[in-house]
Design a binder for these strands. Sequence first.
DNA 1: AGCTTTCGCTACGAGTCGTAGCGTAATGCC
DNA 2: GGCATTACGCTACGACTCGTAGCGAAAGCT
Lengths: 222, 222
Amino acid sequence: MQSRTPASRTGRPRSAAADAAILAATRQALVELGWSKLTLGDVATRAGVAKTTLYRRWAGKNELVVDAVAELFDELELPDRGSLADDIEGVVLQFAAILDRPEARSGLMAAVAESTRDEALRERIRTSIVDRQKRLVLEGRTRAQCRGELPTEPDPGAAARTVDLIFDMVAGAVVHRTLMSGKPADADWVRDFTRVLLQGLGSERAEAAAPPGDGGQGVSAS
Amino acid sequence: MQSRTPASRTGRPRSAAADAAILAATRQALVELGWSKLTLGDVATRAGVAKTTLYRRWAGKNELVVDAVAELFDELELPDRGSLADDIEGVVLQFAAILDRPEARSGLMAAVAESTRDEALRERIRTSIVDRQKRLVLEGRTRAQCRGELPTEPDPGAAARTVDLIFDMVAGAVVHRTLMSGKPADADWVRDFTRVLLQGLGSERAEAAAPPGDGGQGVSAS
DNA sequence: AGCTTTCGCTACGAGTCGTAGCGTAATGCC
DNA sequence: GGCATTACGCTACGACTCGTAGCGAAAGCT
């Protein structure tokens, strides 16, 4: 995951248990100490390994934290709830739940901050976290197209741009809501957000997502 | 800006020039070193002040960087370009230009990361940066309502929720696009984004924002 | 067996942190 | 002018973390 494994067949193999222990210890340290006060020596002690073992596997704090945080986002999945609106609300709530965990908050943001000055780290974040979750958008989109909720896009270039746009809007809004505005992305907020997004995408069932007589008062621009 | 100033009338006043020099030096250090390698001793040297002066005014690295970054976002303004779509595109492009500067990227994200474990810092970011720029949404909204581009919202509670939602969607999407996806928020992207947002908000002139015959190919869900 | 790689441990110089102490400079008040 | 008060520059300090080097032992493979 973090270094080359070109089928190095000879010699003592690296302990997979140590990897798991180190990543778990990293997340625990993120919870208790946060990014800036997290030291590799402390992580090594928590994991029950020597500090030198850490440096043999990861180049530094940045790479270690990225790997530790990336595992959190692999929990995300997209169960079929019958409609595009419900699918989006479900996955957004999952995403918000992950961002509620302190190890995800401080770890992810700090890694992104460091990646602004480290091209290799930026690439690591892209492949380990960002691009990995774009699958959810792709899956939900094709599913909605099969249902007839979204029109098909003949031009593959435009389709790719739209997928990127949706991904940035969804993930960006949730992150900004929870971390910058400091307010919870609860069910009410997610419902409002989904309604705006679907209507913006030209979904024919955008209004159907809001059951009539639910008290009105939905987001209808103000 | 950073400490109590309860009309302390006696004694030598604090040098305002030193404040400006320190904040400028902090931004320069952010550009050259990034967050993690930035040291207060180095900032003091760049600013031409003693290290102790820094500690007398700011509690630590976090607070200093927040103040240094906050000044960057005060440049934002909302010139009247005639239509809501053009207003949004204009301010989003300004925001993207600020996020293009390395001192804003690393400084802002690192501060947000640290704020996840520091309630006082989180409040400082909210008042100094986030809430400060919400004025742009409020101004653009009332302006659009005067033009008849957006319906008025009688319920103040729902209106406030909508303003928050718009703010999180706009700022979040731009930040995620530039920092997470690592792609530029250029004119094409901003146009697509604005179109989706306006249509999602129920703007009556959402389609008018896209001049007919511009080659089609716009974001229309795919 | 022999070979290879990993692991735990110790120790080390380098660098940063945040603070204390001191003398000096710049104000307001009398 | 003289005085009190506060800010400033400078030096020095212990505590801590960093990342690396070196060593012997352990755990695989052929």
